[in-house]
C-alpha cells in the first residue's frame, strides 16, 4: 500500500515504478548468472572467459534472433493475445527467402512474415477467434505448406551473401545481427511510447471494450501488432537462415517458448496491458546468458530444462504474482 502511494505520488518518474521492479530483479539475476559462470570458469579453466567483450558480443549475436522474435511477440502479448504461429512463420520466411535468392530474398522473407501476421490479425480482430487457437491453426497450415514445398527435407537452396553478412558480418567490430536487433528495438520503443498505435496497444490490453468506446481503432491496431509480430519472425528466420547458410525443417521450434518466457520474465503481463520493452530486452539477455553458462558447465539437457523452468517460476514468484480474487 505504502509503495503504491509513493509510486503514484510523483516519485515514479525518477524512483521505482511498479514496472521497474521486474527489470531490476531481472538485471540483478543477469549479474548473478554472470558471477556464477565466471566463478565456474575461474575454477575450471583459470580464466574469466565469460566477461571478455568478444565472448559477450558473440552471445548477444546469437541472442539477436531470439531478441527480434521476442520484440514482435511482446507487441502481441501486450494486447492480451499470443502468437503461436511463430515457429513455422520463421521457418517459412527462411525457406522462401533462400528459395527466391538474389536481391529479393530478404524482402520475400519479410513479406511471408507480414502475410502470416495479417492472416493472424484478421482471424483475431475480425473473426474474434481466440488468438491461442487461431495462430495454432495457422502454424499447422504453414507447416503443411512448407512440407509440401520442400518434400519434408531441408531445402537445398542457400542463403544469399547479404543474409549471411547480416547474420555473421561485423561493422567496426560489432556484429551486424546485433545492430539489426538494436534497430528493431529502437523501432519498438518508439512505436510503443511515441505513437498513437503504441498507446492503443496498451489500452486494448487493459480493456478492449473501453478502448473501443474511447474511439481506438481496435481492429486496425490488433492487425498491425500481429503483422509486426509476423514480420519480426520473418526477419529472424531470414537472419537465422543466413547464420546457418540455409533453411531447415523445424528451425523455428526453439524460439517460441523462450520468446514468450523472455517477454514475461521482463515484466510484461501475460494477459496484456502492462510491460516495458526494456524488460523484454533484459529477459532475452537473461535467457541467452543462462543458456550459454549452462553450456559452459556442460550441463546435460535434462538439467538445463529443469533449471530453465525453475528460473522462470522463481522470477515470477518474485514479481509476477497476480492479485488474489477477493470480490
Amino acid at each position: 500500500m505504502t509503495d503504491a502511494v509513493r509510486n503514484s505520488a510523483g516519485e515514479s518518474r525518477f524512483g521505482l515504478g511498479p514496472e521497474d521492479k521486474p527489470i531490476l530483479v531481472a538485471s540483478g539475476f543477469v549479474l548473478v548468472i554472470l558471477a556464477i559462470g565466471t566463478a565456474y570458469t575461474l575454477v575450471t579453466q583459470g580464466s574469466a572467459t565469460l566477461l571478455s567483450p568478444t565472448y559477450l558480443l558473440q552471445q548477444l549475436q546469437v541472442g539477436a534472433f531470439l531478441g527480434i522474435v521476442a520484440a514482435g511477440m511482446m507487441l502481441v502479448i501486450l494486447l492480451g493475445h499470443i502468437d503461436l504461429s511463430v515457429p513455422w512463420t520463421l521457418a517459412a520466411a527462411a525457406m522462401m527467402a533462400t528459395a527466391v535468392g538474389g536481391g529479393a530474398a530478404i524482402p520475400v522473407g519479410l513479406a511471408v512474415g507480414l502475410l502470416v501476421g495479417l492472416v493472424n490479425g484478421f482471424g483475431v480482430a475480425y473473426l474474434r477467434i481466440p488468438s491461442m487457437i487461431f495462430t495454432l491453426g495457422v502454424n499447422a497450415v504453414m507447416r503443411g505448406l512448407m512440407v509440401a514445398h520442400t518434400g519434408g527435407f531441408a531445402p537445398q537452396t542457400a542463403a544469399t551473401d547479404l543474409m549471411q553478412w547480416l547474420a555473421v558480418g561485423k561493422v567496426l567490430g560489432v556484429p551486424a545481427a546485433l545492430l539489426v536487433w538494436a534497430a528493431i528495438s529502437v523501432g519498438v520503443v518508439l512505436l510503443l511510447n511515441r505513437t498513437a498505435t503504441g498507446r492503443y496497444i496498451y489500452a486494448i490490453g487493459n480493456k478492449e471494450a473501453a478502448a473501443y468506446l474511447a474511439g481506438a481503432p481496435t481492429r486496425r491496431v490488433i492487425i498491425t501488432a500481429f503483422a509486426l509480430c509476423g514480420m519480426a519472425a520473418g526477419l529472424a528466420g531470414t537472419l537465422l537462415a543466413g547464420y546457418s547458410t540455409k533453411a531447415y525443417q523445424g528451425m523455428g521450434d526453439a524460439y517460441l517458448l523462450p520468446a514468450i518466457a523472455a517477454v514475461v520474465i521482463g515484466g510484461t503481463h501475460i494477459l496484456g496491458g502492462k510491460g516495458r520493452y526494456l524488460g523484454t530486452l533484459i529477459g532475452v539477455i537473461l535467457i541467452v546468458l543462462l543458456n550459454s553458462v549452462l553450456s559452459i558447465m556442460q550441463m546435460p539437457e535434462a538439467g538445463r530444462q529443469v533449471i530453465y523452468g525453475g528460473v522462470i517460476i522463481l522470477m515470477l514468484l518474485v514479481y509476477g504474482r497476480g492479485q488474489k480474487v477477493t470480490q
Partner: peptide
C-alpha cells in the same frame, strides 16, 4: 504462487 496458468505450466 498466483502465477498465470499458461506461463506457470510453460515453466
Amino acid at each position: 504462487g498466483r502465477i498465470q496458468p499458461i506461463i506457470a505450466t510453460l515453466a
